[in-house]
Amino acid sequence: MRIAVLSGKGGTGKTLVSVNLAVAAKTSTYIDCDVEEPNGHLFLKPEGVQEEEIFVKIPKVNNELCNGCRKCLDFCKFNALAYIKNKLIVFDDVCHSCGGCSLVCPEKALTEKEKVIGKVQKGTADHVTIYTGILNTGEATGIPIIKKLLAANNPQVDRLTLIDCPPGSACIVMESIKDADYCILVAEPTLFGVHNLDMVYELVKLFNRPFGVVLNKCLEKENPAEKFCLEKNIKILGRIPFDNELGTLNSNAEIAVNKNEKYRELFSSLLDMVTKEVQHETITNP
């Protein structure tokens, strides 16, 4: 059972929810797909960490063979190539590794070479297996790292897996949720929070993923994110209060479930709720 946790912006509580759900479960796998700033490991503190470098292919030019036709320049949507004074220049940092330039080159002047863009770490903490994706600063995209993270976990498809997604609704998030059995959208009780919730709501609908919302930082007063859910008939899975104690635990990199009975109950019942939702989905939409 793969559960993706996502939100339209950073800081809404994706890691809080995924880490606490992972720990609340008997056994689980936690995958940090927020490869630009992975932070789940700060809470889970994995041991016995093993690392693997992740490579992408980038073009390598042979200017002896290049005849200056510029088909590669026309093809590249990211403008990673320039042809100046009869010489082709490649910008490695701008390249998104699509391989198109090598394909369209009629002179075979472009071949591919490997470049390290980051790494994947695997470790364990108690009953949680932890995968962390780390993208090197300045790289164009972390998608190859996310592919690797999710593929590494594929043999354990029956195990409860929490996928801590990157913020937003761009390609990198799409890659993180595309094989998820269920999506948890974490939302803040502000108008800005509603805007960001709407972004990921549109995304999970587009991907036809079953989903529900966790309302985080709930206050006594009116909650615009809750109102949005009620209007759109979106399942509300749970409410996390805007609580000084929880904030303190979190800022000390502690896991609330391990430190506070109230939060153990909150996340355990959230996990039960999500598990039921997924089972219900499997029955109704096998």
Partner: peptide, 18 residues
């Protein structure tokens, strides 16, 4: 033509200028 490109606008702009 680079004004709305997804990336590398500066590279594209220089190509045209050159």
């Amino acid at each position: 033509t680079a004004v709305a490109s997804q990336g590398g606008a500066g590279i594209r702009a220089v190509q045209v200028i050159a």
